[in-house]
Amino acid sequence: MSDVKKLMYVNRRAPYGTIYAWESLEVVLIGAAFDQDVSLAFLDDGVYQLTKGQNTEDTGMKNFSATYAALGDYEVTKIYVEKDSLDERGLLLDDLQHLVWEDEDEDWAEKDSIRLVSRAELADLMADQDIMFNF
């Protein structure tokens, strides 16, 4: 049996009203040092974490949104965004950052990290995990 576990980070909170989003991102980056099968799920208000154009200058808070673009370099390449949550909030895929990763096995071809999934598809993915971390 393989030692590699399937880990999913489940993100359900908006980015600045609470500390959950930032804490999740930090745990993901730390966890990336261990060779595991990692995926991130964004649903409910969590989809707001990935929106483009965040500018926190006038709020005195740190803008951590640019860090999501670095996830590919940490070999975090599976980012599931639940489409139902986008729809409810009037958001389109184009409102989110274009996150990519480079596939070593295909001459570093750039590939999309974000995969839109339905609630049912995400439920299936969750059922397939060894461990889920909830934020």
Binding site: A14, P15, Y16, Y48, T51, K52, G53, Q54, N55, T56, E57, D58, T59, M61, N63, S65, D95
Partner: peptide, 11 residues
Amino acid sequence: LGADLAARGIG
């Protein structure tokens, strides 16, 4: 509040 809109990327 405009600052909170900007933080969240809402034009």
